[in-house]
Computed example of a mutant assay.
Amino acid sequence: MLEHPDFDKYDTSSVTVVGGGGATYSPELLRLMAKKLPQARLGVGYGMSETLGSGSRLGGIAMDSWPSSVGTVEAMCELEIRDENDNVVEDGEVGEICIRGAVVFLGYWDNPEASAKALDERRWYRTGDYGRIADGVLYLESRMRDMIIRGGENIYPIEIEHRLEEHPEVAEVAVVGVPHHQLGQEVAAVVVLKPGSALDADGVKTWVSEELARYKVPTHVIFRDALPYNATGKVLKHELEAEISAELS
């Protein structure tokens, strides 16, 4: 909406609050909102259906201090970051986000196996998301299933996506992992360009390499007219993974 060619023709001064959830705001989106909706207060949160949408919240002047985060834990929740052995990690280390509190669901209807996998004996809910807590602030890294493991290196797609979203010729991007017979996986970037763009695959790789480590630079760059979304506006990465893997095989 912010990038619609007719956006500036309309009076948007009545928009005073903009909220988001499920992911952090990219640096490019924050800059765009500051330009297009300077009067609006921004907020973002982290949660899911299993926690009634509760988890963490960020808004007001705190957005200026931790713009790449999803804020601090809400009063009705407890939040921990755990490793693969279910141990709580040190401050600043990445692990699985776990939530406990009155807002956490009792279990999945008629599915005790899924419930037992999601909830431990102390009713901590394993979210399936990677994140870290630094000085009491939660930062999202990736969905566990979205993480790319290339030659033993963990790669979080959101970091590459945010870098590419800063490119002036990129409209949308999704980063996924595709199989590789030696490395396990490689990085693939699916890019939607803005009208009139002449950006090519080499340009995409160069842009990423200027800020990120070499192993995070996409091996494959695929240009599309649009990305697939579900009804809630989330990119269907599993569809992209399947399509691209088939194309490259």
Score class of each variant (00 low, 15 high):
residue 14 S to Y: 15
residue 15 V to K: 09
residue 16 T to M: 07
residue 18 V to S: 02
residue 22 G to V: 06
residue 24 T to G: 15
residue 26 S to D: 02
residue 30 L to T: 06
residue 31 R to I: 04
residue 32 L to F: 09
residue 35 K to T: 15
residue 37 L to M: 13
residue 41 R to L: 12
residue 43 G to F: 14
residue 44 V to N: 09
residue 46 Y to H: 10
residue 46 Y to F: 14
residue 47 G to M: 03
residue 52 L to G: 06
residue 56 S to I: 06
residue 59 G to M: 13
residue 62 A to K: 09
residue 62 A to D: 15
residue 62 A to Y: 11
residue 66 W to E: 03
residue 67 P to E: 01
residue 70 V to E: 01
residue 71 G to A: 07
residue 76 M to L: 11
residue 77 C to D: 02
residue 78 E to I: 02
residue 79 L to Q: 05
residue 80 E to C: 03
residue 84 E to Q: 14
residue 84 E to L: 08
residue 88 V to A: 14
residue 88 V to I: 13
residue 90 E to C: 04
residue 93 E to D: 14
residue 94 V to C: 06
residue 96 E to Y: 03
residue 98 C to S: 14
residue 99 I to A: 01
residue 100 R to N: 06
residue 102 A to G: 15
residue 103 V to C: 08
residue 105 F to A: 13
residue 105 F to W: 09
residue 109 W to Q: 09
residue 115 S to F: 12
residue 115 S to M: 07
residue 118 A to V: 13
residue 121 E to I: 08
residue 130 Y to K: 01
residue 131 G to H: 05
residue 131 G to S: 06
residue 132 R to T: 04
residue 134 A to C: 11
residue 136 G to F: 15
residue 138 L to I: 08
residue 141 E to D: 00
residue 142 S to C: 02
residue 145 R to E: 11
residue 146 D to P: 05
residue 146 D to E: 13
residue 151 G to N: 13
residue 151 G to R: 13
residue 152 G to R: 06
residue 153 E to D: 14
residue 155 I to R: 00
residue 157 P to I: 00
residue 158 I to L: 00
residue 160 I to A: 00
residue 162 H to Y: 08
residue 167 H to N: 13
residue 176 V to H: 04
residue 177 G to C: 06
residue 177 G to D: 07
residue 186 E to V: 10
residue 188 A to S: 12
residue 194 K to C: 05
residue 195 P to N: 06
residue 195 P to F: 07
residue 197 S to P: 01
residue 200 D to S: 12
residue 200 D to F: 08
residue 211 E to A: 14
residue 212 L to H: 04
residue 213 A to M: 11
residue 213 A to C: 10
residue 216 K to Q: 10
residue 217 V to Q: 03
residue 222 I to G: 02
residue 222 I to H: 09
residue 224 R to E: 10
residue 238 H to W: 10
residue 240 L to Y: 13
residue 243 E to D: 15
residue 245 S to A: 15
residue 246 A to Q: 14
residue 249 S to P: 01
